[in-house]
Design a protein around this nucleic acid. Structure first.
Lengths: 289, 289
DNA sequence: AGACCGCTTGTAATTTTATTACAATGCACT
DNA sequence: AGTGCATTGTAATAAAATTACAAGCGGTCT
């Protein structure tokens, strides 16, 4: 578990003094792990027992144990916490914050994903007669990307961001079809209706959305990437990174499930495309990276 | 750097008792970091000062400091590395690998990005009369997403994945226009031609592509996210995560540059949309997260 | 408004833990 | 065997963390 992200997540629940401790640590995590409890208490402007209580609240045995956990979180190079962009931030500052927030988000999603559900989703997909990806707005982008990925496999794939086409597709769907619906909120009426329509026609519906949403309840299988709280108006849309990566995972699971013969085929396709780049005289779009 | 390796390397040079300490740690490093100096001394069969001297010899300030370093070494075992998916991997295994590779990629890009170029790109964008995003294949998805982001600001934006429309747009472009071209390889002929066309019409061209590519040379400004080597056929497309995040950064820079009045407006838009969700009786697509 | 309750925070005492100083031991070389 | 240096342990000291407890603050009920 990433301790820095954990601190940030719990920050709101803390009392006034404990929040001071949290802030002092988040502001200079590297210094925090090299400080004694007295030094940290001083720099946070609180008493030593307060720091100790803070550590216990973070589910550690005490201050030394807390430092150990924090050190492990910092070990991977950089502390990635979701931090809000400030209007006085320099380029370096906001770039760092955005990339770190993205990483923190991916980290959290990775840890909260239910592997069993992923496994079942891969089961469904690898046995599908036909796979369809739908989303609207920002999630349309994700659906589009998913189609690009699955296009490389020998399975019929479909994508559209036109709600009328989407409806027609669901109405004409049937047993053996798998429909993947992507919606960050899970509260977009059109998506919920598509799920209902599709299920009425025995289409298997996989939703990538947020927990407790109408869409999650309507779908046969729900993948629920839990992204950190929306801390900032200026850097939204981070959740689609998680969605994209999740779909990478499903595509990988798909290909592993389909066996070695199938993978051989993909390798050949890839190499054939690689030889047709700019410097070789032939040209192809980018979806072959 | 890596403390475990360090201990192993220095083991031969140590004295008899200190070697006992080294062995005790190497045998159960996880136990070691949760032990006190007394406990570790006992399990190694030596006295406490011996353990302390051992820590000093490892170039740390003392036992607590040593534990910190050791903890960091143990933590950095798993994360961050791009690891290839193996055909015998379990769901947990390949999910972990994919997410970690994604994070590693973002981390590397963050470290290799040129801030000055970002800054100039933001300059260009924030003074643009009109902004256009083009890409093909997987990069079309990124361009589409970029349009979604910039649509929320009060600047004319355009996107298309139709090469004919793209050409027409470039031919009709003029001074004050900014064109953002996205291509992972930078060797897609159409993209390079678009850049040339656009520049002939005094359009400012920003490329998001790979270094030393024809597109990078053709563009007025090139943002070059260096993604890790393509280690695996099964997890490609990681670079678009970097591109998306980079565009998040540009959008953030854009909004910061445009000043506070503008941000106020965005906040209002966002709140207005939030109130119109499923549970409130109104419905909107997802591009408002 | 005032008294009471519970939660938060700090002070001071206690305990645990780590470090230092120094003495004893072992080992090599004369 | 004896001297000198390095290694190790013992005991004292210092530092750090934890605990117990009391004061303070904010809220509610009478």
């Amino acid at each position: 578990m990433n301790m820095l992200e954990n601190i940030r997540a719990q920050r709101e629940r803390l009392s006034k003094s404990e929040r001071k401790v949290a802030d002092a640590i988040l502001q200079a995590p590297q210094r925090a792990i090299h400080s004694s409890i007295a030094a940290l208490a001083a720099s946070a402007g609180v008493s030593e027992p307060t720091v100790n209580r803070f550590c216990r609240r973070m589910e550690t045995r005490g201050f030394p144990d807390f430092k150990l956990h924090l050190a492990q979180s910092l070990a991977s190079g950089t502390p990635w916490v979701s931090r809000s962009v400030d209007e006085n931030d320099s380029v370096e500052a906001y770039t760092g914050k955005i990339f770190e927030s993205a990483m923190a988000c991916l980290d959290q999603v990775r840890q909260t994903l239910d592997m069993q559900t992923i496994n079942r989703a891969v089961d469904w997909l690898s046995q599908a007669r036909r796979i369809t990806f739908f989303g609207l707005g920002a999630s349309a982008v994700v659906a589009h990307d998913a189609m690009n990925k699955f296009l490389r496999f020998n399975v019929p794939v479909f994508y559209s961001d036109d709600i009328v086409v989407q409806r027609m597709n669901c109405i004409n769907g049937g047993s053996g079809d798998v429909l993947v619906l992507i919606s960050h909120t899970g509260r977009t009426r059109q998506m919920v209706e598509l799920a209902r329509l599709a299920r009425d026609n025995d289409v298997m519906v996989i939703a990538i959305t947020s927990p407790d949403s109408p869409l999650a309840q309507e779908a046969g299988l729900s993948l629920l990437p839990e992204v950190p709280e929306d801390t900032d108006v200026y850097i939204p849309m981070i959740s689609r990174l998680a969605q994209l990566t999740l779909l990478d995972t499903l595509a990988t699971g798909f290909i592993l499930r389909r066996g070695p013969k199938f993978r051989e085929n993909l390798k050949r396709v890839k190499e054939a495309l690689r030889e047709s780049r700019f410097d070789k005289g032939l040209f192809l779009p980018d979806n072959t990276q």
